[in-house]
Every structure is written in structure tokens, then in C-alpha cells.
Amino acid sequence: MNISRRNFLRNGAFALAGTTLLTNKLLAARGAAKEVLGIQLYSIRDDMKKDPSGTLKQLANMGYKYVEHANYVGRKFYGYSAPEFKKLLADLGLSMPSGHTVMGKQHWDAAKKDFTDEWKYTVEDAATVGQHYVISPWLDESLRKTYDDFKAYMDVFNKSGELCKRSGMKFGYHNHDFEFSTQLNGQKLFDLILQNTDPSLVAQQLDIGNMYHAGGIALDILKKYPNRFELMHVKDEIKTDHKEGGMSGNYESTVLGAGIIPVKEVIDLGRKSGGTKYFIIEQESYQDKTPLEAVKIDLQKMKQWGY
């Protein structure tokens, strides 16, 4: 049947309006998304290395429904391709809205002003597996030596946000402790990160334990930057005689509620004014418990707190 140009344009306009309305509804639904309580799989890294499928099944049996990965190598998650890992999770009643993959200097071609294929594949696979956030949990030391180099890389952060947005996701950054101990031009690195990234493109995942190693206080940060922390790593810390890997202070993580961080107060403030919807449990040291025993206690504590 022949369709006149007028009818074609009119029908196209209706279709576009419908698509726009649907997109707006989806974005609104995402903005009003329910809270997510998950686990960072680095907490049980040795178990995941030995038996990913069996370990995930144990997490599901504990009551976990959401996980965050910390292993993406050679376009595979814990040895599985993106479609395979998505199916494995789905078969266990799990999903993975976020994941950690370091974005480094090697992922940005300054001459071409574009990302390398390696980072484009990272974003592509994250979308395939069902992530909403692609989170980089590290900033190479070479990128934080001078203010100009650092600021230039914050532009790359924003560009990564644009790249992720095209796949329906958001780029994110996760802090350690150096962001609070390192200063450039008289300002803490953490402040510079938040000041030089577009919150509509770059989400912040606040690790409330890591910052403690450098004197960072999560409650103060949440009050200083309201509505900037869409995700949070929920963690408690205790004093120790040895240093946790990569950290500058003599502290290590412990089961929630057993340490020196006022965890419930912090997560309640995140919920109230921090803009936090994703609460991700992470524990890296276990004292007299196995990792799986520890994360089971952590989940029970979060549920006891109403999460």
C-alpha cells in the first residue's frame, strides 16, 4: 500500500512521541528504582576462583539476589562469556547490576580522542550481562601526579560516561584511600574527582571502609556531597597490626557491626540524603571465619537493619 509523505511523517511523529514517552517512563522507573542489596564477589574471591557456579549457588541459598563482579579478563566473567554468565546468574535467581573493571591509560587513545577496542568491548560485555553500572575501582598513580594530567583524565571519565550511556548504562568510580591522602593544587583528590565529573554521566560508589585508612569519614563526605553516591560499598573496619593490601592505615575489614565504623548510621544517611540505591556488601578480611561464613553474617545484619 502506498503511503503519502504527509501520512508517513505524521505516523513517524506519533511513533517518535510514543518512543519518547516510553523512554521517559523507563528513565523515571529507573530513577525510582527500589534499593538493591548485593555483594561484591571479591569478598569471596578464592571461592569464586575455585568454583564460580557452586559459590554463586551458596550465595543464592543465603538469600542474596544481586552480585557485583571483580573479575573480567579476556572478555570473560570468572571464565564465562557475558551471555553464559548472565544465564548462570539467572538460573540461580541472581542478577548483576554493577561490576568492577579498571579503566586505565591504555584504554584511551589520546591521538584519536577515542577509547580503544578493549574498553569498548568491556562496555559491550557489561551491557550484555545486564549491568547498569561499569565501575572503575582504581586510578593509576601516573594519572594523579600533576593537576593537569589528573584533570585531563577526568574528561576521559566523562567521555566513558557518554560511551556507557549509549548502551543504557552509567560509568562509575570507586574510591580507595589515596583519594583522601593525596592533594593536587591544595585540594584532596576525592574533592577534585567530584568537582570535575558530570554526575549525570559518572556515578560515585562510596567505599565507607577504604577511606578510613586515610582519615576519611563517610558521614562527613555524605553531608558534604548530598545525592552524589548512587552506590555504596558497605564495610566495617577494625584495628590490626598489619596493613591491608593497598591501604596505608593499620585497619582491616570485619563483619558488619563488629568494627569501629558506625555502619548503620552511614547507610541510613546514604538512603536519606546521599542518593544511594545500591548497597553492596564487601568484606576482605575475615579473622576467625571463612569468607562465606562472614558474608552470610553480613547479609543477616543488613536485613536486621531493614535493608
Rank of each mutant, 00 (worst) to 15 (best):
I3T: 12
R10H: 13
N11Y: 15
G12I: 14
G18N: 09
G18A: 12
K25P: 04
A29K: 14
K49M: 09
D51T: 04
G54L: 10
Q58Y: 05
M62W: 11
V67E: 03
V67P: 01
R75D: 12
R75E: 15
F77L: 06
F77E: 03
E84W: 07
K86E: 11
L89P: 06
A90W: 07
D91G: 01
L92C: 01
G93R: 11
M96F: 05
M96A: 04
T101I: 15
Q106W: 13
A111R: 11
W119E: 01
K120Y: 04
Y121M: 10
Q131A: 12
H132F: 12
V134N: 06
W138F: 14
D140S: 14
E141K: 15
S142K: 10
K145A: 08
D149M: 08
M154C: 13
D155A: 11
V156Q: 02
G161R: 11
L163G: 01
C164N: 09
C164P: 05
G168F: 13
G168D: 09
K170T: 10
G172Y: 05
H174L: 02
N175W: 02
D177T: 03
T182N: 12
Q187I: 04
K188I: 08
K188L: 07
L189V: 01
I193D: 05
L194H: 04
T197W: 03
T197S: 06
P199A: 02
A203D: 09
I208W: 01
I208A: 03
M211A: 05
A214F: 03
A218D: 06
I221C: 05
L222D: 02
Y225T: 09
P226M: 08
L231V: 02
D236T: 00
I238L: 11
K239E: 13
T240F: 11
D241V: 11
E244L: 13
G245V: 13
N250Q: 11
L256G: 00
I261E: 00
P262L: 00
K272T: 13
T276F: 02
K277G: 06
I280K: 05
I281E: 02
E282L: 10
Q283V: 04
E284Q: 09
P291M: 06
A294Q: 06
V295L: 01
I297R: 07
L299W: 00
K301W: 05
K301C: 00
W305G: 01
Y307L: 05
